[in-house]
Amino acid sequence: MRELVSEAEVVAASGDDDLVVWAAQGMRPGVRAWAYGDAVAVASPEAARRDRLAVRGEAARVVPLLRHALAEAGPSYRPFGDAALIEQVVEAVPELELAGRFSWMGTEKLAPPRERAAGRERPPAWLADSAAGEVADLLAAASPGSYAVPGLPRVHRWAGVRDGSGALLAVAADAWPAPTVGLLAGVATASPARGRGLGERVCRFVASALLAEHGRVALMVDDWNAAAVVVYERLGFARRRVAAAGPRA
Score class of each variant (00 low, 15 high):
residue 94 P to D: 13
residue 97 E to P: 02
residue 99 A to D: 15
residue 99 A to S: 13
residue 103 S to T: 07
residue 103 S to Q: 11
residue 103 S to P: 02
residue 105 M to P: 03
residue 105 M to I: 08
residue 105 M to R: 10
residue 106 G to T: 15
residue 109 K to S: 13
residue 110 L to T: 03
residue 110 L to P: 00
residue 113 P to S: 06
residue 114 R to F: 08
residue 114 R to L: 14
residue 115 E to S: 10
residue 115 E to F: 04
residue 116 R to V: 13
residue 117 A to L: 14
residue 118 A to P: 10
residue 118 A to I: 11
residue 118 A to H: 08
residue 122 R to W: 00
residue 122 R to L: 15
residue 123 P to W: 05
residue 123 P to H: 07
residue 125 A to H: 11
residue 126 W to M: 05
residue 126 W to K: 01
residue 127 L to F: 09
residue 128 A to T: 10
residue 133 G to Y: 07
residue 135 V to E: 03
residue 135 V to Q: 02
residue 138 L to Q: 04
residue 143 S to P: 02
residue 144 P to L: 11
residue 146 S to T: 12
residue 146 S to C: 04
residue 147 Y to T: 10
residue 147 Y to M: 11
residue 148 A to N: 00
residue 148 A to T: 01
residue 150 P to H: 09
residue 152 L to A: 12
residue 152 L to P: 00
residue 153 P to Y: 11
residue 154 R to Y: 13
residue 157 R to D: 03
residue 158 W to Q: 06
residue 160 G to Q: 07
residue 160 G to S: 09
residue 162 R to L: 15
residue 165 S to V: 12
residue 166 G to T: 07
residue 166 G to H: 06
residue 170 A to S: 15
residue 173 A to Y: 04
residue 174 D to L: 04
residue 174 D to M: 01
residue 175 A to L: 05
residue 175 A to G: 06
residue 176 W to Y: 14
residue 177 P to Q: 04
residue 178 A to G: 12
residue 179 P to R: 06
residue 179 P to T: 08
residue 179 P to C: 10
residue 179 P to Y: 05
residue 180 T to Q: 10
residue 182 G to Y: 06
residue 182 G to I: 04
residue 188 A to F: 10
residue 189 T to F: 10
residue 189 T to P: 02
residue 191 S to V: 15
residue 194 R to D: 09
residue 197 G to L: 08
residue 199 G to M: 06
residue 200 E to G: 14
residue 202 V to E: 08
residue 203 C to F: 01
residue 204 R to F: 10
residue 207 A to Y: 05
residue 208 S to Y: 00
residue 212 A to P: 00
residue 213 E to L: 09
residue 216 R to Y: 07
residue 218 A to P: 00
residue 218 A to V: 06
residue 220 M to A: 13
residue 222 D to H: 14
residue 222 D to C: 00
residue 224 W to Y: 15
residue 224 W to N: 01
residue 226 A to H: 11
residue 229 V to N: 06
residue 231 V to A: 05
residue 231 V to Y: 04
residue 232 Y to F: 13
